[in-house]
Simulated assay, not measured.
Amino acid sequence: MNKKRIQETAVLIFANSAEVDARNKTSISNPELFYELTAHTLNIVRQSGLPFFHISEKEQRGNTFGERFSNAIQDIYDKGYENIITVGNDSPELRTHHLTETDEHLKLGKTVLGPTLDGGFYLMGLHRSNFNPSLFQKLPWQRVGLFSKISHLFSTNNSTLHTLPLLRDIDILEDVSALLNFIGRIPKAVFRILADFAKRNIQFFETHILKSEMRFINCSFNKGSPNLLLFPQ
């Protein structure tokens, strides 16, 4: 009988195509931006030397985000990997050292999360023993408090959690303005597109970004970004 070879860590890039992202994220509907973001993510992952799988809307299965994400994770485990590092394509500050640090902590038996400013996460490192598809699907995906909820889930499984630095992601127009303040931390191609986008939408930024306000967002993101966001001055 052939036994499946046990392998250690693989990266799951759970990200839609640029065209689908542009349709879903209507306030920043720019396929070129999402193409560059995906290219950046692929480049960062390749530099880590870890095996990786890009699962877009073409391969995703399920009716809800939780189902599609959980099924994608299970598919990678079924290939024989013990650990999975999941990332999306909307975190331009992501670097290879975030992946290698995650891999190191996974080998120590820890679970890893990289939080985002909106209360979601840009990266998750998870051993198969800490993955419960049923509980995972019930998490408040794309809602406020996701990071807190998933952290609590891991703690109840007696998993030691390692937290990576806080990063920004791109989901809505306001995120563009925030990221433009960090030119040295995002890819030049992405910065060029964001700067051009901001220039063409200068009236929006002048009238909205400088105010502290609560906004409701109703769109389909690649990972755990909430629908309800608070933007401070």
Rank of each mutant, 00 (worst) to 15 (best):
N2M: 07
R5D: 12
I6A: 07
I6S: 08
I6F: 02
E8G: 02
A10T: 13
A10Y: 14
A10C: 13
F14G: 02
N16L: 08
N16M: 11
A18E: 11
E19I: 07
A22R: 00
I28N: 00
N30P: 01
E32Y: 02
L33K: 01
L33V: 04
F34E: 02
Y35D: 07
L37F: 09
N43Y: 12
I44A: 05
Q47S: 14
Q47M: 14
Q47H: 13
G49C: 06
G49H: 07
P51A: 09
F52D: 13
F53G: 05
F53W: 15
H54G: 04
H54R: 14
I55A: 12
S56G: 08
S56Q: 12
K58W: 15
E59G: 10
E59P: 01
Q60L: 11
R61V: 15
F65Y: 05
F69T: 06
Q74D: 10
I76N: 02
Y77E: 02
K79F: 03
E82N: 10
I84L: 03
I85D: 05
I85N: 03
G88D: 08
S91I: 08
E93A: 04
E93Q: 10
H97D: 12
T102D: 03
T102R: 02
L113G: 12
G114P: 05
P115W: 09
T116K: 00
L117K: 04
D118W: 00
G119Q: 00
G120P: 05
F121M: 03
Y122R: 01
L123M: 06
M124T: 14
H127D: 13
R128P: 09
R128N: 12
R128L: 03
S129K: 15
P133Y: 08
K138M: 10
L139D: 13
P140F: 02
W141K: 05
W141E: 07
Q142A: 01
L146S: 11
K149F: 13
F154C: 03
N157M: 14
N158I: 09
S159D: 11
T163Q: 13
P165Y: 12
L166S: 09
I170G: 00
I170E: 00
I172M: 00
L173V: 14
V176S: 01
V176F: 01
S177T: 06
A178R: 00
L179M: 03
N181F: 07
N181L: 08
G184L: 02
R185S: 14
K188P: 08
F191M: 03
R192A: 13
D196Q: 07
A198Y: 10
A198T: 07
N201P: 10
I202L: 10
Q203F: 13
Q203Y: 11
Q203K: 14
F205Q: 01
F205P: 12
F205M: 03
F205V: 13
E206G: 08
E206D: 11
E206K: 11
T207P: 05
T207D: 11
H208F: 09
H208P: 11
I209R: 05
E213G: 15
E213L: 05
E213Y: 06
M214Q: 10
R215G: 12
F216M: 05
I217L: 03
C219V: 06
S220D: 08
S220C: 06
F221H: 13
N222W: 04
N222F: 03
G224P: 07
G224L: 00
P226R: 01
P226D: 09
N227F: 02
N227I: 01
L228A: 15
L230G: 15
F231I: 15
Q233F: 11
